[in-house]
Measured scan of single mutants.
Amino acid sequence: MLDDRARMEAAKKEKVEQILAEFQLQEEDLKKVMRRMQKEMDRGLRLETHEEASVKMLPTYVRSTPEGSEVGDFLSLDLGGTNFRVMLVKVGEGEEGQWSVKTKHQMYSIPEDAMTGTAEMLFDYISECISDFLDKHQMKHKKLPLGFTFSFPVRHEDIDKGILLNWTKGFKASGAEGNNVVGLLRDAIKRRGDFEMDVVAMVNDTVATMISCYYEDHQCEVGMIVGTGCNACYMEEMQNVELVEGDEGRMCVNTEWGAFGDSGELDEFLLEYDRLVDESSANPGQQLYEKLIGGKYMGELVRLVLLRLVDENLLFHGEASEQLRTRGAFETRFVSQVESDTGDRKQIYNILSTLGLRPSTTDCDIVRRACESVSTRAAHMCSAGLAGVINRMRESRSEDVMRITVGVDGSVYKLHPSFKERFHASVRRLTPSCEITFIESEEGSGRGAALVSAVACKKACMLGQ
């Protein structure tokens, strides 16, 4: 009897593995994704193909990295998701002549009506938060230079001027797309009239992360975010950046690689679950690469896999709870928690219980395998993109072996128990001629924006502006 049951459990697990095998990517698959990513990057950089390229390769006008001589107080704003952060950054000489960066910050959550109302409502709310922060720190009387981390696709015309191309991540505030974001912020500050600010720089969160990590390690020339969304930036040779005049030196390019796949480059790798996630998203047909990796989508992918296993009578005796059938019910943090389970399955059992399920031991094991399959594919897909960037940098610099540091931020990278190990191992397999160091950014977005502002202020002083 026991043997029969054991055989049935083994057969069930084997069927589960057959279904989950769809998520496995072979090294040849990853090399294919990497080569296609490089081709799209090239198209994004070139003037004649930029418009139709899915990977936009947006110039950021960040050319210099901090040298350690900029000092002063800077205000930093960070808008990239449902939370908005205001930070005071003091850049100065530390002990023994070292450079020191001290920060104080406060988080504000953005109400739904500000995210989806008008641009005026959104930026009025942001300036209200700045006003509140300055009151708390008794700094209303000071006109501070301000660095703005704005983590949406922007076409820069200068370091302090950028046109919002399109909202992502659930934002829909009308009247912002096609307009200068810094102008919208300046107008809102003017409307309030109770404080003055000098907006000197606007950067993407990947750029802010790279600059913040450069402060720790001067070989950091790539910034990457794996959180709600997924994106990367890197220092490109100016001669390859056709959208900006000049051939000397390097400029940081914001790849906006989340949109890779929007022209069909990933079609052969998309599964039924991916198509369902895409169809029910706020932007169907867009940001397809990001939807395979980002935390906004990972939990939902797992939920759809679990429903398939229920329908195949391989999980929960073929019956799903009402909660499990509800879109968004299986949160991405559950994926991390399930994979963090120590082996007694308590954590998995508790999560499934909150979803109205009474799982068996085998159910718990199957749910864990589903989570591992989805998150491992995410790590491997992400590795193909980064390997594409790094191999490109090595080739354009004609280096036999390139040493490089990548600064990384984002909740999936930082909080998932195995993502970074799987990701690092896969990147290294795909970049055999590179020695890569990964560092995690601390308060990256805010500190990085302030350091970019410090560079901009120093330049302005040198130019006598």
Rank of each mutant, 00 (worst) to 15 (best):
D3G: 11
A6V: 11
R7F: 09
R7L: 11
A10H: 09
K12C: 14
K13W: 11
E14C: 11
E17L: 14
Q18V: 13
Q18M: 14
F23K: 05
D29A: 11
K31Y: 11
V33H: 00
M34W: 14
R36I: 09
R36G: 04
M37G: 01
M37S: 01
M37K: 04
Q38R: 09
Q38W: 12
K39D: 06
M41Y: 04
M41E: 06
R43K: 05
R43P: 02
L45P: 05
L47F: 12
E51W: 10
E51A: 12
S54I: 10
V55Y: 03
K56P: 09
M57S: 06
L58N: 07
V62R: 03
V62I: 08
S64R: 14
S64F: 15
S64K: 08
T65H: 15
T65Y: 11
T65P: 15
P66H: 06
P66I: 15
P66D: 07
G68I: 15
S69R: 15
E70Q: 09
V71H: 15
D73H: 15
F74E: 01
D78R: 02
G80L: 05
T82R: 02
T82Q: 01
N83M: 07
N83Y: 03
N83E: 01
F84R: 04
V86P: 04
V86Y: 03
G92L: 06
G94V: 13
E96V: 12
Q98M: 09
Q98T: 13
T103H: 10
H105V: 04
M107Q: 11
Y108I: 03
I110P: 05
P111S: 09
D113Q: 08
G117T: 13
G117H: 08
G117A: 09
T118H: 05
T118E: 02
A119C: 04
A119K: 01
E120Q: 13
M121T: 08
D124K: 05
D124I: 00
D124S: 05
S127C: 08
C129H: 06
C129P: 01
C129W: 04
I130G: 04
F133M: 07
L134P: 01
Q138V: 12
K140G: 05
K143I: 07
K143R: 08
P145D: 11
G147A: 02
T149L: 04
F150N: 02
V154S: 03
V154F: 03
R155H: 06
D158N: 04
I159W: 01
I163M: 04
L164C: 01
L165F: 05
N166H: 13
W167M: 03
G170D: 05
K172E: 05
A173G: 00
S174W: 01
G175T: 10
E177D: 00
G178E: 01
N180Y: 00
V181Y: 00
V181L: 08
V182K: 06
V182N: 00
V182H: 03
L184T: 07
L184Q: 02
K190L: 06
R191D: 04
R191G: 00
R192A: 07
V199L: 02
V199M: 00
V207T: 09
T209D: 03
T209L: 06
I211Q: 12
D217Y: 08
D217A: 15
H218E: 12
Q219S: 12
E221R: 10
V222A: 01
V222E: 01
N231S: 06
A232N: 11
E236Y: 00
M238I: 06
Q239F: 15
D247R: 05
E248C: 06
E248Q: 14
V253F: 03
V253W: 02
A259M: 03
G261A: 05
D262H: 08
G264Y: 10
G264E: 09
E265G: 11
L270P: 07
L271G: 08
E272S: 10
R275S: 12
L276E: 11
V277W: 01
V277G: 07
D278K: 01
E279S: 13
S281K: 04
P284R: 12
Q286V: 14
Q287V: 15
Y289T: 14
E290W: 01
E290N: 05
K291F: 00
L292D: 08
G295D: 02
G295Y: 03
Y297K: 07
M298A: 05
G299T: 02
G299F: 03
E300P: 04
V302Y: 04
R303G: 05
L304W: 08
V305T: 15
L307H: 08
V310L: 13
D311L: 14
D311R: 14
D311M: 04
L314V: 14
L315Q: 06
L315E: 05
H317L: 13
A320V: 14
A320G: 15
E322K: 15
A329P: 14
E331V: 13
F334M: 15
S336C: 11
Q337G: 11
V338T: 12
V338G: 06
S340E: 13
T342S: 07
Y349L: 12
N350S: 14
I351K: 13
L352G: 09
S353E: 10
L355K: 05
L357T: 07
R358T: 12
R358S: 09
S360Y: 12
D363I: 06
I366A: 15
I366G: 07
A370G: 07
C371Y: 05
E372L: 06
S373D: 06
V374H: 05
V374G: 03
M381G: 05
S383Q: 06
N391W: 11
R392V: 08
R392C: 08
E395T: 14
R403T: 12
I404D: 00
V406T: 07
V406M: 08
D409M: 03
G410H: 01
V412K: 06
Y413H: 05
H416A: 13
F419W: 11
K420D: 06
E421H: 12
F423I: 13
H424M: 11
A425N: 09
A425D: 14
A425K: 12
S426C: 12
V427G: 06
T431P: 11
T431S: 13
P432Q: 09
P432Y: 09
I436V: 11
T437G: 08
I439W: 09
I439E: 12
E440L: 15
E442H: 15
E443H: 03
S445K: 00
S445N: 03
G448T: 05
V455Y: 15
V455I: 12
A456M: 15
C457E: 04
A460E: 09
M462V: 13
L463N: 12
